[in-house]
């Protein structure tokens, strides 16, 4: 049981985090950026749970991951509500076109 070394979990999480970062940078769409941010939060959770394997009495890592999931759920609802308002006002979902303060 549990022959997979810790480093492999961490490497998978690092790969997912980097892909999420690249998605959040490249996508010119509010919801595309949100997809990248969700992927990054998931990668962080993999790290926490992989370290929590060695702490079966208290499971601090899994509790942290649970709170991260709660905060991610709150964040995405608020972000989508704000995106709806921005879309209703500017009629666009491109973050480059919401530039009133730069004009």
């Amino acid at each position: 049981m549990n022959t997979i070394p810790l480093e492999h979990y961490l490497l998978v999480a690092a790969a997912l985090f980097s892909i999420g970062l690249a998605i959040a940078i490249t996508k010119r769409h509010f919801i595309g950026m949100l997809l990248g941010i969700e992927l990054m939060l998931n990668a962080v959770n993999i790290n926490l749970i992989a370290f929590s394997r060695y702490d079966p009495e208290k499971l601090s890592g899994q509790l942290f991951a649970l709170f991260v999931i709660v905060v991610a759920a709150a964040e995405v609802t608020i972000a989508l509500a704000i995106i709806m308002r921005v879309y209703g006002h500017y009629k666009t979902v491109d973050p480059d076109q919401v530039d009133d303060l730069k004009r």
Partner: peptide, 26 residues
């Protein structure tokens, strides 16, 4: 991966919250 790391409750929470809630919302 959560299940393989011994976190069964979090795996079910992940599926319920992310797949059932966040993804549908997106």
């Amino acid at each position: 991966l959560y299940v393989l790391a011994g976190a069964d409750f979090l795996a079910v929470t992940q599926i319920m919250v992310y797949v059932g809630g966040i993804l549908v919302l997106m």
